[in-house]
Amino acid sequence: MLRLASKRVLGLATRDGQSVSRPAQAVLPRFYHENVIDHYNNPRNVGSFDKNDPTIGTGLVGAPACGDVMKLQIKVDEKSGQIVDARFKTFGCGSAIASSSVATEWVKGKQMQEVLTIKNTEIAKHLSLPPVKLHCSMLAEDAIKAAVKDYEAKRSKGTIPEAAPVEKAADA
């Protein structure tokens, strides 16, 4: 009888706990979408390219004081203008890491002009970012634009290709 009684009390306790917690759960927004978790746990295209390679465009946006810094690099095929590869490094929350990971995936294989049309809202939608995290997707959009801009600036100047080997040594 004792066992029965204590079981009942226990059962009641857990059930009560649930019935209290469940409505609260329903009200709260889900914290991270599974796409965010996936990109956070297995980020795609982490790494760096040589910044001074003429076929590389680098976008560095954000500030450490704001909690987010994103570096996105694109490797462009000079003849076709197609982005053949992309890399990122990000200091920031999980959403920022996921946003930049998604951005590198999306820009790969696309034309330069094409990637400029990638909107932060698309990234946010893909990752189901909550409103407080929208700035992460905006940062990713900015990073793509900055990278393209950097590449174009390099091409129009065309001054630094011969310096590349030196830079490599410094980067090591």
Partner: peptide, 25 residues
């Protein structure tokens, strides 16, 4: 009260394979 209030509810987030809550497993 327990019989009236709560039918044997499946555990909402804990199962033998792990815990899923707020998108985190």
């Amino acid at each position: 009260v327990s019989v009236a209030a709560a039918a044997p509810a499946p555990d909402s987030y804990e199962d033998p394979n792990g815990i899923i809550m707020k998108g985190v497993k």
